[in-house]
């Protein structure tokens, strides 16, 4: 059986890679991928702690909830990105500096 701290180290590394992508990228889709990486790091933590709960399965059930939340986030974020592209012809968040009409 793998120790708990090994999973936590991998999760921390994935979280930091996601953070780096969010801060440094100039493309809304790549920023979205960074957010997904951070969410996956959180799910890995939930699953790793869920190993110690055979009766209630709270870790695994909340990991399932987090996966569903990630799907909802992605759908809405992609609809927003497509709308922004239609209006500004770019998806660089640094160049979008006007609101509405």
């Amino acid at each position: 059986m793998i120790a708990l701290s090994d999973f936590l180290i991998i999760s921390a590394a994935l979280f930091c890679i996601g953070l780096y992508m969010i801060v440094s990228k100039r493309n809304a889709i790549q920023i979205l991928i960074g957010i997904e990486l951070m969410l996956n790091a959180g799910i890995l933590n939930l699953v790793a702690f869920g190993m110690y709960d055979r009766v209630d399965n709270s870790g695994q059930i909340f990991a399932l909830f987090a996966i569903v939340l990630a799907a909802a986030t992605t759908a809405v974020a992609l609809a927003i990105i497509l709308n922004v592209y239609r209006r500004y012809k770019t998806i660089d968040p640094g160049k979008i500096n006007a609101m509405g009409e």
């Binding site: 996956n40 890995l44 699953v47 190993m51 399932l64």
Partner: peptide, 19 residues
């Protein structure tokens, strides 16, 4: 694969299907 090693097979399958 890591979820399977953490003994959460159902979460692993859901991950593959949804993600």
């Amino acid at each position: 694969g890591l979820y399977v090693i953490a003994l959460a097979d159902f979460v692993a399958v859901t991950q593959v299907v949804i993600y």
